[in-house]
Nucleic acid binder design. Structure first.
Length: 610
DNA sequence: GCGATCAGCT
DNA sequence: CACAGCTGATCGC
């Protein structure tokens, strides 16, 4: 839970995700996402009164967050004071002191955060430097390198401070299985159950918060069905979610809720009270999405755990793991890092100390020279393709994201199993070669929940790293980049899932034996093999109980080193007229590195002129 | 009656 | 397997 007080040292006249106490005096408000612990004071009468007397104070958020917020009548009074901003579109905002007329300009950019629908990070750029407020976020390793607006040309922007979602910034939470792995486990479990008969139904025991919609859309696609929920109203302007949810109870997958839903479930009832039409009792299992974490060297990472005769927990996390956060921070190398959450059982001092290790060292002048690893890790649009080496079915954006920081000694690590950088980095040519491969370009969580009014341009922008345009609707049976890049540093083993099962001995129906008593999806040690990104067949699941989307090792011949960067093949000496053009662009402040994505579209928000 | 806070629960 | 939020008790205004 966020304990962020609402203000940043660099820009103290704005408030984020807190709206009480000192924050009542802010010149502008920002809401990163629509979870209650980030909305403290937002419906307070004091703030309401302040708005009525102000001509300039506004609340900035994403379009989706605005929609979700206004769906709750308690926040309806905000309607005329909310300014929804497009994602990844730098916007200049005037921070006006209404008493004195004093004004400060700041440019804010919303970056997809992957936490829940509409969730964003805020990047502020102004006279006090660049500051990134992450809100809550889930980034996989390497994701930061794909965000164009965290870069300036080929270099990472100089970030003064990061205000960090440190929920899992604790070595205990070293790894959390990726979304794709967790999703696959859930899909398998649901498939095994609902395929038995139409009376076999699943209850997704989700909490009362946004963030599970990704699960609904993927389940909906996989099983060509809709998910029963209590209300559709919040999604009425979000067709990409709306089409997957229903208030019609005649479906095999439910995510409906009731104050006494656990009691209902114990009595073999769904929260909605749904019963089979012909009187046959429903056969219900509950799946409770829960965060599961594992240590650095832990081999077992069960993503589904059976907790009762018909109850399961499924791994699901809205937040980045320790290793994912470390990857994020080591890429950005901010001067300061401030935690917004203190993990359970930790103190602020402990977390601050741990975070200090991730701050840029004062003696580090690399920013003034080069950022070669940053360049290597980035995926770029419209890069030339060359070379003809055979490469496995992995795309550049899944391989350019390995942790590259010098790892400090971890709590349980001996430092002996860490792969050398050469083993985890790939050469630029390899990345280019692999661009456009379908498997790894299935739309991802971040794309989905942040492209609220999905337009083609927004979609393609969200995949700018891959030169691929997302479909406007998720296709759930996609084969995601399973296991391709999610190995924690130091874990040199490939990853597969084993479905270990002891067959039910208390089934009342023969078909029940299809659902094991103990259903554990776990990675296990396996030999190095060729990549295979397709899902393992049902037969394999039944026969060998092995689910193994596989991960290949980067062979020696594919490995790159920091110093083995080939020249750009089409490079040539620029002609005078080209140089002139380049200089003009530079003089106008335009980013010459890339196309429109890099060029800041600075929109002036004229406050008070509405 | 309303809001803030906390314990308890899931 | 620890996130997010609900309910209910208590207190103050």
């Amino acid at each position: 839970m966020s304990s962020f007080a609402g203000r940043m040292k660099e820009y103290p006249t704005i408030s984020l995700d807190r709206f009480d106490r000192e924050n009542l005096h802010a010149r502008a408000y920002f809401l990163s996402h629509c979870h209650k612990d980030h909305m403290k004071g937002l419906k307070g009468p004091l703030l309401k009164r302040k708005l009525q007397f102000s001509r300039t104070v506004r609340l900035y958020c994403s379009f989706v967050t605005k929609e979700l917020l206004l769906n709750n009548p308690k926040y309806a009074f905000w309607e005329e004071y909310i300014v929804a901003l497009e994602l990844e579109s730098p916007t200049q905002i005037s921070l006006v002191d209404e008493a004195s007329g004093e004004k400060e300009e700041v440019v804010v950019t919303l970056l997809p955060a992957g936490h829940c629908p509409g969730s964003v990070m805020f990047l502020f750029e102004g006279s006090k430097g660049n500051v990134l407020y992450t809100g809550d976020f889930r980034f996989a390793a390497g994701d930061a390198s794909r965000i164009e607006l965290l870069h300036s040309g080929s270099r990472v922007k100089d970030i003064q401070s990061v205000y960090l979602d440190s929920t899992f910034y604790d070595p205990r939470f070293y790894q959390i299985p990726t979304r794709e792995v967790c999703l696959k486990g859930i899909l398998e479990l649901v498939k095994n159950w609902i395929s038995q008969s139409s009376h076999h139904v699943v209850w997704l025991n989700c909490k009362a918060a946004y963030g599970y919609e990704y699960l609904f859309t993927n389940l909906g696609d996989e099983f060509n069905t809709q998910i029963h929920v209590n209300s559709l109203s919040m999604f009425k302007k979000m067709p990409e979610i709306l089409s997957y949810v229903t208030t019609d109870r005649r479906t095999q997958i439910h995510a409906c809720r009731h104050p006494k839903d656990d009691e209902y479930f114990q009595g073999n009832r769904l929260p909605c009270g749904c019963t089979a039409a012909d009187g046959t009792p429903l056969r219900i299992i509950s799946i409770k999405p829960s965060t599961m974490w594992f240590g650095e060297r832990t081999k077992k990472t069960n993503v589904i755990i059976k907790t009762g005769a018909s109850s399961f927990r499924a791994c699901f996390s809205f937040h980045s793991s320790y290793s994912e956060i470390k990857d994020f921070l080591s890429y950005l190398q901010p001067v300061n890092i401030y935690p917004s959450v203190i993990p359970i059982g930790r103190t602020l001092a402990e977390v601050t100390q741990l975070l200090k290790l991730m701050c840029r060292k004062q003696s580090d002048h690399s920013r003034l020279i080069y950022k070669p690893l940053g360049v290597l890790k980035r995926c770029r649009v419209e890069r030339p393709t060359y070379g003809n080496t055979h490469k496995p079915d992995r795309c550049s954006c899944c391989t350019c994201l390995q942790v590259t920081e010098e790892e400090e000694e971890e709590h349980e690590g001996q430092g002996d199993a860490k792969p050398a950088k050469e083993e985890v980095m790939k050469e630029p040519e390899e990345k280019m070669e692999e661009e456009g491969k379908e498997n790894c370009h299935a739309p991802k969580w971040e794309d989905f929940f942040t492209t609220e009014m999905l337009t083609d341009s927004q979609n393609s922008q969200s995949h700018s790293c891959c030169s691929v345009t997302s479909p406007s609707r998720m296709t759930g049976s996609q084969t995601p980049e399973l296991f391709s890049d999610e190995e924690p540093p130091g874990n040199d083993e490939n990853f597969s899932l084993t479905l270990s099962a002891s067959l039910s001995n208390h089934s009342s129906q023969n078909m029940d034996s299809c659902l094991p008593d103990t259903l554990i999806l776990a990675p296990e040690q396996r030999e190095q093999g060729n990549v295979r990104t397709s899902m393992t067949s049902q037969k394999e699941v039944n026969d060998g109980l092995i689910l193994q989307p596989e991960l290949d090792e980067v062979s020696d011949s594919q490995a790159s080193s920091d110093f083995n960067i080939p020249c750009t093949p089409e490079s040539k000496v620029p002609q005078p007229d080209e140089l002139l053009q380049l200089y003009r662009k530079l003089a106008s402040g335009e980013d010459c590195e890339n196309g429109k994505n890099s060029c800041s579209r600075v929109l002036l928000v004229h406050l008070g002129s509405e």
